[in-house]
Amino acid sequence: MIIDLSGRTAIVTGSTEGIGFAAASALAAAGATVIVNGRTPEKAEAAAARIRQAVVGADVRAAAADLGTAEGCASLVAAEPACDILVNNAGIFQPSDFFATDDASWDRHWQVNVMSGVRLSRAYLPGMEKAGWGRVIFLASESAFNIPLEMIHYGVSKTADVAVARGLAKRMAGTGVTVNSVLPGPTLSEGVAAMLDDGDTSKSTEEKGRDFIAAHRPGSLIKRLASVEEVANMIVYVASPQASATTGAALRVDGGLVDTL
């Protein structure tokens, strides 16, 4: 399968590292014009430069905005008023016991993980509908279905992402615009690598990842962390013309963790 996104513009939120950066890179490699987003101009510009260096001929722009606020979302839309592909990837996670998680933590996860996607979808979907083509992709998580006991607040926010994507797919029915969610399992991003860094240099990060899976996600069928590139592959496919009949779906890149048919 050859995916050609030439002539399409993609915005990938939270794309200075991790899954977002991998998705932005892969979309650029498929020919899309890509807008890289981060909270600071320095990080956004540096990530855009890395993609230009890695992908010959890549058309990449940087757009700095803190999407955890309504004002930040508005500033991104002002800078980039239209797109064909919106990847709502911006997200945070913080392990915290339910009884130690205060209202501010719940609200921060809700604003970043849910409302950023709500606000940007509300801004960009009308233009996609008018054009008769568009793709909106929410980065959810297997935690949307397997609520993690160590961060219930995060799991709830990801369940909401799946629900918003499903509802928007219904709202955009028959327009040529698809809306889907992608559900990664535990993935070796920079954030997860930092979480696994316990100071023990006798094991590689990959080995520590396998230990984490065995201890905390024993239902994994691949028995390892996924790579960010593996998740990005699904995002690029869902963004492609070839995925035109896929909408309202919760697409799993979870290593088989969600135990359902």
Rank of each mutant, 00 (worst) to 15 (best):
G7Q: 07
R8M: 12
R8C: 05
T9L: 15
A10M: 09
A10G: 06
A10F: 01
S15K: 08
T16N: 02
F21I: 12
F21C: 05
A22P: 11
S25N: 13
S25E: 15
S25Q: 15
G31E: 07
A32R: 10
T33L: 10
I35S: 10
V36E: 03
V36F: 06
N37Y: 06
G38T: 12
R39V: 15
A44P: 06
E45R: 13
A46W: 06
R50W: 03
I51K: 08
R52Q: 09
A54R: 13
V56Y: 05
V60A: 07
V60N: 02
A62S: 14
A62P: 09
A63Y: 02
L67E: 07
G68R: 04
A74P: 01
A74V: 09
A78P: 01
E80R: 08
I85M: 05
I85E: 01
L86V: 11
L86S: 07
N89S: 11
I92D: 05
F93V: 15
F93E: 13
P95A: 04
D97T: 09
F99R: 12
T101E: 09
D102F: 05
D103T: 13
S105T: 15
D107N: 10
W110Y: 14
V118S: 00
S121M: 04
S121A: 13
R122K: 14
Y124R: 00
G127H: 02
G132W: 06
G134N: 08
V136S: 09
I137G: 07
A140Q: 03
S141I: 09
F145W: 08
I147M: 00
M151S: 12
Y154N: 01
G155P: 01
A160N: 03
D161N: 14
D161P: 00
A165M: 07
A169L: 10
K170V: 14
R171M: 05
V177Y: 00
T178Q: 09
A193Q: 06
L196Q: 03
D198V: 02
T201R: 13
S202F: 03
S204K: 00
E206V: 15
E206W: 03
R210K: 15
I213G: 00
I213Y: 01
A214F: 05
R217G: 00
S220T: 05
S220V: 02
A226P: 00
V228W: 02
E229N: 13
E230F: 06
V236P: 04
V236H: 04
V238R: 03
S240Y: 14
A243T: 13
A245P: 01
T246I: 15
R252P: 00
L257A: 06
